[in-house]
Design a protein around this nucleic acid. Sequence first.
RNA 1: GCCACUGUAGCUCAGCCUGGUAGAGCGGCUGAUUCGUAAUCAGCAGGUCGGGGGUUCAAGUCCCUCCAGUGGCUCCA
Length: 637
Amino acid sequence: MPESVSVTLPDGSIRSVPTGTEIGKILLAWNPEGFRRYVAATWNGVGVDLSRPVTADGVAAPLTFQDRAGRDILQHSAAHLVAKALTEVVPGALPTAGPPTEEGFYYDFDVRPLTPADLDGVHAAMARDVASNLPFDRLEVDRPEAVELAGGNRHKQRYIEEIPPGETVSFYRTGSFLDLCAGPHVPSTKWLAGAHILGFSAITAGGEKDGEPRQRIRGIGFPTKPELEAYLKLRAAAEARDHRVLGQKLELFSFSDEAPGFPFWHPNGMVVIRELERFVTDHFLEDGYHEIRTPLLFAKSVFETSGHWEHYRQNMFITLADDREFGWKPMNCPGSMMIFQSRARSYRELPLRLAEFAPLHRLEPSGTLHGMTRVREFVQDDAHLFVTEEQIEEELVRLLKWIDRAYTTFRFTWSYELSKRPSQFLGDAAEWDRAETVLEKVLKASGIEYRVSAGEGAFYAPKIDIHIRDSLGRPWQTGTIQLDYQMPARFGLEYQGADGHLHRPVVIHRTILGSWERFFGVLLEHCDGRLPPWLSPVQVRILPLADRHEPAADQLAVRLRKSHLRVERAGSDETLSKRVRQAEIDRIPYLIVLGDQEVANGTIALRIRGEKGQKLLSEPDAIARMSTAVEQRAFDP
RNA sequence: GCCACUGUAGCUCAGCCUGGUAGAGCGGCUGAUUCGUAAUCAGCAGGUCGGGGGUUCAAGUCCCUCCAGUGGCUCCA
């Protein structure tokens, strides 16, 4: 072995160090500012501990929390800390796996159901271990030793068997705790001062339906406590934006134990969904859409034709009438197909765009219901486009543009997902391939970045899905575009072409915003209840300074309503400060205070949500200011 | 659907561990106050403690069960 080796550093410089020098020491000599900031390193591109001795020439680079890999390492080390704590607090608990996640980390245990008291114990043990500054020591062992070290934990023993032959088997020791792990890890528990448990839940192993029950502890790690505290503050703020909380406070909607998953839209909420509907239908004429309405219930035979009976029945509400089985429609497609089918069609009618905003019912599993974002009854801005093979691409491009425009209006960031053929599918694979190819081609041509999900398509068609995230970062699917060759065939749809022959149309199922319920739920969180003025249930609230100003306030309200503004007049019992405060809490976009001065001068003292102070405007100017924002569907007042 | 946790006034929560006459704040109502941009004062009303069953002299409190919600898991055109 040579006495010294050459190490190439990130800036390209090369250092010669004695063989066996720890990589962390080399990196810190190169950049002392990395002290405590470096969580691990890469050696020739592979993640290693900072304590790894260097025994050959190579390339070294530090990993910090800012690097994805460094962040993951810290999360994973925090998971070890949790596992150490839990095995001490609950003797007999068997650690299974504890990987980092997009947000933080979790560790799954084979253990009796946990209680909040267990978690308190885990917290205390973790704090103690961080204070003790225990090192993470790496042990490389052969397989028999590994099995020995696993100490009767059958899960770890199975993992050892799964390690490919030839690969090094390693353990990490933290104090008295030993865990099978490839590493690398942070140098010591001091690096985990900002580790925190976010919650625990029971899960089933491997996500299998009949898997073994496990207990999962979820957490997140930061290099320091202040960073953790900043995160927890942000998270608390995000939780306060929960649409279920806002929906109640702003009297938008509610739910009842006696109708689980079925929303009650209150007057305020109804204003919002009607405005959303108008946002979509405003373009119907120019975009060539025709609105239809088809039944909510169909005889079973319709769903047998569509394939729902075979592929979707477990999610359908079924009703018995006249000794006949009826299904509540979970989708609008069958009704649209039947309208197309109702008479002979010509190629001249295509593309035929039929829109339907009907309530849909889906028997979603009870455990999946979630406020407005996962309900059992909802309405979507749905349409079915009947097109010729040649018209497909142009229609798809138009839809993608519309999605772009719509989501930009709400200042959402959104993502695209291409979902391909599922294991249970209608029709033949060749048709699916064709449809998937077209969708992919259009996405690429539009310069859109997208994720591909194999097996996630609808049972009748591949689709492009739109996802937006709620305030806690959970993704929700909203819009979807599906290219369907199956329903037209199953319903026997035909049109007569210019060539005089009969042809089969292709159907594009599409919804832009998805369901009003889900879209609105996420939107509420997105804007913290501060809806754009055009969506605000009350756009203007007039505050008469004293009760002698009430008549003038009422007259002003009448004039504003003539400009189609939704206006409300407050009482004058409370102090002005109190009423202003209430209006802020109610997220009213525009406030007008009316006192002696305004009455005398005919001016408007306008307070605009989100702006400091108030503007003194003439009445026409004030009306123009508000109406313009509303008509343009501006995001801010 | 699975697992854990939770369910007390319209809302947010205390009381439950250790059984002994249901509490607070906000909101609501009434009265006073008439105010210049984020909480004026006083009084009053409001609860079969999620439903059902059990243990007990006695259950909001302990036990069982059902329902619903929450967090995950699985699912999700």
